[in-house]
Design a protein around this nucleic acid. Structure first.
Lengths: 213, 213
DNA sequence: TGTAATGTTTACCAACCGGTCAAATTATCA
DNA sequence: TGATAATTTGACCGGTTGGTAAACATTACA
């Protein structure tokens, strides 16, 4: 008899590897576009090019599929923050953090929307990740920023809200893409808006808007 | 025979006024928390304290209800940007725009999430509003900002991305509230985070992070 | 007060959705 | 090759969901 994935302890076959990959790719597409509840297994199955029972052979429930996806994507998503380096030049570090986050918004908008959907609706499936690993990482980096501020290397400011500001301004270009496009008009159809955003944000975070003599 | 709302042309009765109010309040609660597809008519009906068919007597479809809600809320939501004043002091105008948007995030988080849900999932119901009234308003205010920059009253910067930055940083505190709370920890349980955010953001937008002699 | 318009409820329906089952098909490997 | 395990499928199920029909209740107003 065939055993569903969760019950297997042996090494995975080539087919398992491939199919799970296809499924998670399709699941990312659908979950990120419609949220957990708005997504249907049929939709995902169709995108993955297989029947619904076949899909459910690899992931026994919709929740299991969502969880596997979250687990797979969360690590990558936090990479830019992990690279944040205490030893580097503070202003340069913040600039490159902004740049990396913006690149992720450009290159992985579905991943961004996956989390945005989840958090927006109260993070029912990832509360633990937020309060655990995420908080821990942010606490750590916030301490770095606090030290920089204390040493007079950057302006005194609340490090948590600084991190929130970087997150929100950069992820905005993934999560609210349709609005950004609508406002900018179709003239800016290409990826130019990301370069413009990078220029603007680096300047904003470093110099602010006030003119000085 | 009873006619559903859309077919009526006469003035509305007291009962209509009251019930539609109750429904839209409940609809705001549910749509903002679960998105359009995730929300159910039963949920809204229960929150509004009436039966489902009764609710459907006032709004014939879920879509009609959603649309009425969007129409009602959009105007209020854009008020802070409308108040943006070309004649005022540029830096002061930007500061108070940030402050007002942050107050809206604090006082009307459901409204913020309603739009966030909608835009995040591709704005299927409000595309016209984005490309029409919203774009028009933003174009207008962007021109004001551009003029300020040209006159040397604020730093030269892309006005559209400036507006995006204000939107994203402020709305973040409504849309991603659970994440903000999770990261800050329960010590900051009250509304203190909004004051901290206001302090940080005003400073960020005006001065930036770089220290100067 | 009578009656017509308005408002409310109960019962219901068809489509959809997450998930199961058993049978059929295909891959693996001794 | 053959047997065994892994994979795939079509048919199906119970619960939910958006929405309807029609009877019943209430309100407005002449």
């Amino acid at each position: 008899m065939a055993l569903p994935r969760a019950a297997r302890t042996q090494r995975r076959t080539r087919i398992q590897e491939e199919k799970e990959e296809q499924i998670l790719e399709a699941a990312l597409e659908v979950f990120s576009a419609h949220g957990f509840r708005g997504a249907t297994i049929d939709q995902i199955a169709e995108k993955a090019g297989m029947s619904k029972p076949n899909l459910l052979y690899y992931f026994r429930t919709k929740e299991a599929m969502h969880r596997a996806l979250i687990d797979r994507v969360l690590d990558t998503w936090l990479d830019p923050l992990r690279e944040f380096n205490a030893e580097g030049n503070p202003v340069a570090e913040i600039r490159s953090y902004i740049r990396r986050k913006l690149e992720m918004a450009r290159d992985f908008p579905r991943e961004s929307r996956l989390f945005a959907n989840e958090i927006l609706q109260g993070a029912p499936h990832i509360e633990d990740e937020l309060k655990g690993p995420l908080k821990q990482l942010v606490d750590e980096k916030a301490e770095v920023i606090r030290a920089w501020a204390k040493a007079g290397k950057i302006a005194k400011c609340d490090p948590y809200h600084l991190i929130f500001a970087v997150w929100s301004t950069t992820q905005h270009y993934a999560d609210f893409d349709v609005q950004v496009r609508a406002v900018l008009g179709q003239e800016n159809a290409g990826d130019g808006r990301f370069e413009d955003a990078a220029r603007f944000l680096e300047r904003l975070f470093v110099d602010g808007l006030q003119v000085r003599e």
